[in-house]
């Protein structure tokens, strides 16, 4: 009997799933070596059947998406029980990703923006309800939790595959490792390992040249004319997250003239990606007087959103104070 494989999304965008499909022919290797036991995006298996499975009967579950609702948390716990190996797959599951930026505001404000805005006709200021009486009965919705959490803040995680989404060549490499393990040709990597990524920073993979140590201005891309294709973007005055971000993508974004926005999460040895970026950026600014420093920093008008674009939910502070206070 082939070992079982599962993939599940919680609060996710589906890009992680698409990235898995993008391994193209390799999908067939997956099929050849595993029985796909649960994968809502690609096949019809219902939650109930997962509940009926024996504990630890799934060899490996790739879990993508963050924990935003009680339903997400329930599924995380269920799949933890059913799986021998639980992999936090993609930035959302590992560090909250961009949806984790919601942690900079409160849950209430999410509802206000979504249900009272220019195109919404909602004079009574209705909000979705956890339980709602309709003529035929009661309809329920899973409650939204106060803040976005990462998978490892909810259950124990065996491996981490970073990236938003993980690059397909990296997914293929991870799959090869799993297949080798199944065939008895390789040992499992040590628990807690980061798979499908490099062990240095995006800057180390980036072919752009770095010559000057200081920058005297930070600009936004729409303020800069077409950029030099060979010089480090940060040196050209554009904020780039490369210095604090884990390698593994072959510096995709800088390669096409866009800054690294940090999707592979904190570089190895970095506890807090945002703090590391703050340190790095402050180091290279060429200014000594408070006013001059502030002028440069004005070019970076949203520091928390920039430094923690992907890793807020997994950072040391995790969320805005008011949002955290709502959790209880």
């Amino acid at each position: 009997m082939k070992p079982k494989f599962a993939m599940y999304w919680a609060a996710a965008c589906g890009g992680c799933e698409i990235a898995v499909l993008n391994i193209d022919e390799k999908v067939l290797d997956l099929d050849a070596n595993f029985e796909v036991a649960f994968w809502p995006a690609a096949m019809d298996v219902k939650y109930k059947e997962v509940e009926a499975m024996e504990d630890e009967s799934i060899l490996v579950t790739l879990f993508n998406g963050g924990i935003r609702t009680d339903e997400n948390e329930h599924m995380a716990k269920l799949l933890r029980r059913k799986s021998k190996l639980l992999v936090a797959f993609g930035s959302c599951a590992n560090e909250g990703c961009i949806p984790g930026l919601a942690n900079l505001g409160t849950r209430e404000s999410i509802f206000d923006c979504a249900f009272d805005n220019p195109s919404t006709e909602n004079p009574a200021h209705l909000r979705p309800q956890i339980a709602c009486q309709v003529p035929e009965g009661v309809l329920t919705l899973p409650p939204l939790q106060a803040v976005v959490r990462t998978l490892d803040q909810v259950v124990e995680v065996d491996y981490h595959v970073p990236g938003c989404p993980p690059e397909s060549h990296q997914i293929a490499a991870v799959l090869d490792v799993l297949i080798a393990v199944v065939k008895g040709e390789a040992e499992l990597p040590p628990k807690g390992a980061v798979l499908g990524a490099g062990d240095t920073s995006v800057c180390d993979e980036c072919p752009r040249s770095r010559d000057v140590k200081h920058i005297d201005k930070l600009s936004r891309i729409q303020e800069l004319p077409v950029l030099d294709t060979e010089v480090c973007l940060l040196e050209q005055g554009l904020m780039c997250s490369g210095p604090a971000t884990r390698s593994g993508c072959n510096s995709r974004c800088p390669n096409v003239g866009a800054p690294c926005i940090g999707c592979y999460g904190a570089a190895p040895g970095v506890l807090d990606q945002g703090a590391r970026l703050m340190a790095a950026i402050a180091s290279v600014i060429d200014a000594k007087e408070p006013e001059a420093i502030d002028r440069v920093l004005d070019g970076l008008p949203d520091p928390a959103g920039t430094f923690y674009r992907f890793s807020l939910a997994h950072s040391l502070l995790r969320a805005n104070r008011a949002a955290l206070a709502e959790q209880e």
């Binding site: 609060a11 935003r68 609702t69 339903e71 949806p99 930026l101 919601a102 900079l104 505001g105 404000s109 999410i110 206000d112 923006c113 979504a114 805005n117 979705p128 919705l141 899973p142 939204l144 936004r220 891309i221 729409q222 926005i261 008008p301 949203d302 959103g305 674009r309």
Partner: peptide, 18 residues
């Protein structure tokens, strides 16, 4: 639809080019 991630809220405050 039992989910809401709140993009309309948390994009507020971000630079528009992002």
């Amino acid at each position: 639809v039992p989910e809401l991630r709140g993009f309309e809220r948390f994009c507020v405050g971000r630079p528009v080019e992002e």
